[in-house]
Amino acid sequence: MTFLQVNSSGNEVSLMLFFGTIGMLVLAIGMIIFIIFHQRKVIRYQLRFQKLEFQQQKTLLNASIRFQEEERQRIAADLHDDAGPLLATARLYLNENLVNLDKNAQLQSIYNAKQIIDDTIQLIRNISHSLMPPTLKNFGLESAVNDLFQKISGSGSLNASCRFHDYRERLIPDQELIIFRIIQELINNILKHSNSSFIHLTQNISGPKLYIRMHHDGRGLTQADFEKLNKSGGGLGLKNIQSRLKLLQGRIFFEKDASQTYYKITIEAPRSEEQTLKEEKVITY
């Protein structure tokens, strides 16, 4: 420790003591001030980040509320414009039956009323199916997606195909519904905007995650476009996808294929621990 001690004249010692003390204090105070300012900067950055995140959540919340309102309006319009007039017409036929005493005319009007009531039943069934597809509820995501793709292919406008590689264990119904809605939304977007000639969907699992990938050859989005549209005022459907994914705790990735010919959309969704364990047991046996 002798290096710490200075053996020199009194004046030199005093100078060293004075400047040494000043130097040490300046260093200590400088360090404290630096830490205070650095921390303030970090906290301000965190607050700004939280604010942005909050705004993003608010946008998503607004989008989901708007989407729900639109859905309600659509159902109301379907009931009012289609079911309402049909039932009114059926009532007219039945009224006519009361007034008209001619048996043939009565039979004809009853037949017409029956036809109209059948149409109404079909219409209400369609509305109900659009709210909750029965195939999804009874047979699961794989069957519901297959049905959807068959309908699209059946329309003849484009070729839609799907393949589920590993869907032995169904997801919980809530998850299936969310994923199905996301797929529906993506397909709607592809049909509306992409002008593609085919859509192909594949499913697979990897550990505790389920993956769904869609390919199409039309105009598509990249992740940057998706994020930009998500932050902007428009793109209600995309915001809806984002909020559903948030609920699902899943992720989505939009990209262009390496060959630059196709667009790919990958959805990652978590599987419950129970499903993962079951899967592992099957593999062990």
Partner: peptide, 13 residues
């Protein structure tokens, strides 16, 4: 930090 140099030099004062 303030008294560091004072005590360091104390034996020479």
């Amino acid at each position: 930090t303030g008294t560091f140099f004072l005590f360091l030099q104390s034996s020479d004062l």
